[in-house]
C-alpha cells in the first residue's frame, strides 16, 4: 500500500466509516446469482455452504501429492479391496480440511514437518524420496509406543493421517463393501441367524 493510500484508509477507518453516509443509504444492487439447487435432505444454508467449500482449494498440488502417497501407504490395495486413493480418500480429506478448519494447521504443518525431516535425512521432500526412504521415514512416526521423543510431532501427524484415511475409506462404497456391512436396505429382522446363536452358545 502506498503511503497516500494508507493515510486515506486511516482517515476513513478512524472515523468509523468504511463508506460515506450518502453511499451507505443506497442499497446494493440485487445479487444476480443462479439459484442453487438444494439436494434432497439438505437445508438451503447447508447446500450453499457445501457449494462454497467445494469451490475452494486447500491443498497445494505438492501437498495433495504427499497426502495421496501417505493415504496409499496407510491403506494399500489388497486382495479384497482397492487403495485409499482409489476410494477417493484424498478428495475427502481435502473437503474435511475446509469443513472443519481446526484440522488445517495440524495437517499443513504436519506435511511441512515431514518434508523438513525428509530434507534433513534424504535432501529431498517426502514425495521426491525413494519408496524405501518414504517407508524408512514413516516407520519412525507410525508406531506411537516405539517412536523416539524427537518424533512426537510426527507421530501426532501420522495419527491424524491414519484417522482420516481410515474413516474416509470405510465410509466409501469400496470400504463399506470390504467391511461387509449388509444393511441400509428394507428387510425383515428376525434375530441373529441360527448358526450365529449356536456359535455363541445362545441357542435355547
Amino acid at each position: 500500500m502506498k503511503r497516500r493510500d494508507s493515510l486515506k484508509a486511516l482517515t476513513l477507518s478512524s472515523l468509523g466509516m468504511a463508506v460515506g453516509p450518502a453511499e451507505a443509504a443506497v442499497p446494493a444492487p440485487p445479487d444476480k446469482k443462479v439459484p442453487l439447487k438444494v439436494p434432497g435432505g439438505r437445508q438451503a444454508f447447508e447446500a450453499e455452504r457445501d457449494a462454497k467449500l467445494n469451490a475452494e482449494k486447500f491443498f497445494t498440488p505438492a501437498e495433495l501429492k504427499t497426502v495421496t502417497l501417505l493415504c496409499d501407504i496407510i491403506l494399500p490395495a489388497d486382495a479384497k479391496s482397492g487403495s485409499a486413493s482409489q476410494a477417493g480418500v484424498p478428495a475427502f480429506i481435502e473437503f474435511m480440511m475446509k469443513d472443519q478448519p481446526a484440522n488445517q494447521t495440524p495437517m499443513r504443518g504436519g506435511l511441512a514437518w515431514l518434508d523438513n525431516q525428509c530434507r534433513k535425512r534424504f535432501s529431498k521432500p517426502f514425495a521426491d524420496a525413494t519408496k524405501a526412504q518414504q517407508i524408512e521415514m514413516v516407520d519412525l512416526i507410525a508406531y506411537p509406543q516405539k517412536a523416539t521423543p524427537a518424533m512426537s510431532q510426527g507421530v501426532a501427524f501420522f495419527n491424524l493421517m491414519r484417522n482420516f484415511t481410515m474413516t474416509g475409506f470405510y465410509t466409501s462404497k469400496m470400504g463399506i463393501e470390504d467391511l461387509g456391512y449388509m444393511g441400509n436396505t428394507p428387510n425383515n429382522w428376525d434375530g441373529p441367524p441360527e448358526a450365529v446363536l449356536k456359535q455363541y452358545g445362545l441357542l435355547k
Partner: peptide
C-alpha cells in the same frame, strides 16, 4: 506394535 500402516489396518477394521 500399536498403530502402523498397510494391509494390517484393513484386517483391523474387519
Amino acid at each position: 506394535p500399536a498403530g502402523g500402516y498397510g494391509s494390517r489396518l484393513k484386517e483391523d477394521a474387519r
